[in-house]
């Protein structure tokens, strides 16, 4: 087997192991409650019968290890259990929600990734001149404000005062045509773009600068190549891995940003679903959502690692 395939296989196996450990951690995370889960779900006024019923439904009378494997077995077969509060099948509700969330994240990524790379290149091109300084100033400001506040500022000025875009995503219907869906999510997409843009731009700038300061770039310049050739033929092939890394890291960051933004704009996605059920203390839903978010996060990091393995000439062309 070629070393590249071997490394990728190792990395995938590691990702799966990590995911398994994460499922354990999430499960333990919901066990550490001092006292009784059923009691805290139903509150102090609950009758003893209701408590006993809930305990039985939750399987609280079984030992934790058995409960964990029962849960994991279900998850592996696509059965995420039923929600305590509504009695609905979690999987069927969640897939629809996940689809909505991915729709939102997808459009945020489609806009922010090319924009961030372009602006990152611009900052490198005009390093230490005003475009670079402006970009780093905006970055500092935007990482100093939480996502939900950026959302409200935009909502207030663009949505309510200027009425350019819908202030909330209440009008979002999953079965509508793409254009009206896009209209409904324009503002949340703008906010998400702003949120990840700053980080992504700054990290792209750093990654490209790192490559541009290599000795082989000097060699290319001393060959009399034009700036375009230097960048396209020499900097670009070596920048793919670091830039993909930056992009994946920020998409992972986007996944977390989505949670808050969905709540702000009342968007029927995974994030809102999760937050709603955390306040209702609906443990099975929280576990399921946590696991899916973690899986997406780990998956994106895995892709970044695989890209850097594949693009490494030392591994692709062993001695």
């Amino acid at each position: 087997m070629s070393p590249v395939l071997k490394l990728i296989a190792q990395r995938v196996a590691l990702g799966l192991l990590l995911l398994f450990m994460v499922s354990v951690l999430i499960f333990i995370g919901t066990l550490i409650l001092p006292g009784d889960v059923a009691q805290s779900i139903l509150g102090q006024s609950a009758t003893p019968e209701a408590l006993a019923n809930l305990r039985r439904d939750l399987g609280l009378n079984d030992p934790p290890v058995q409960r964990y494997f029962a849960w994991l077995g279900g998850v592996l077969q696509g059965d995420l259990g039923t929600a305590l509060t509504s009695g609905q099948d979690i999987a069927s509700v969640m897939w629809a929600r996940l689809e909505n969330t991915l729709f939102l994240a997808f459009w945020a990524a489609v806009i922010s990734v090319p924009l961030a790379i372009f602006l990152g290149l611009l900052a490198v091109r005009y390093r230490d001149r005003w475009p670079d300084k402006l970009i780093s100033g905006v970055t500092l400001a935007s990482i100093s404000v939480p996502e939900f506040l950026i959302a409200y500022v935009l909502m207030f000025f663009i949505g309510v005062k200027l009425r350019w875009l819908n202030p909330t995503a209440i009008g979002f219907r999953p079965d509508a045509d793409v254009l009206s869906k896009l209209e409904a999510i324009a503002l949340p997409v703008a906010v998400l773009t702003l949120v990840v843009l700053a980080h992504m731009m700054r990290m792209t700038r750093a990654a490209i600068l790192n490559v541009m300061q290599s000795a082989y770039i000097e060699t290319a310049e001393l060959k009399g190549l034009s700036l375009f050739s230097v960048i396209w033929r020499h900097a670009f092939p070596n920048s793919i891995a670091p830039v993909v890394n930056v992009v994946m890291l920020n998409l992972a960051y986007l996944v977390v940003g989505v949670v808050v933004i969905e709540v702000v704009f009342v968007y029927p996605g995974m994030g809102q679903y999760l937050v709603d059920h955390v306040s209702k203390r609906d443990v099975p839903v929280v576990q399921a959502c946590g696991l899916i978010f973690a899986a997406v996060y780990i998956g994106l990091n895995l892709i970044a690692d695989i890209v850097s393995i594949v693009s490494n000439p030392r591994l692709r062309h062993p001695k």
Partner: peptide, 21 residues
Amino acid sequence: LRGGEVTYVSQSAAASFNPAK
């Protein structure tokens, strides 16, 4: 001029060659 009339050999060839080509 650069690369045509005058060329350059650096101290560290390992760093001066592009690893991807």
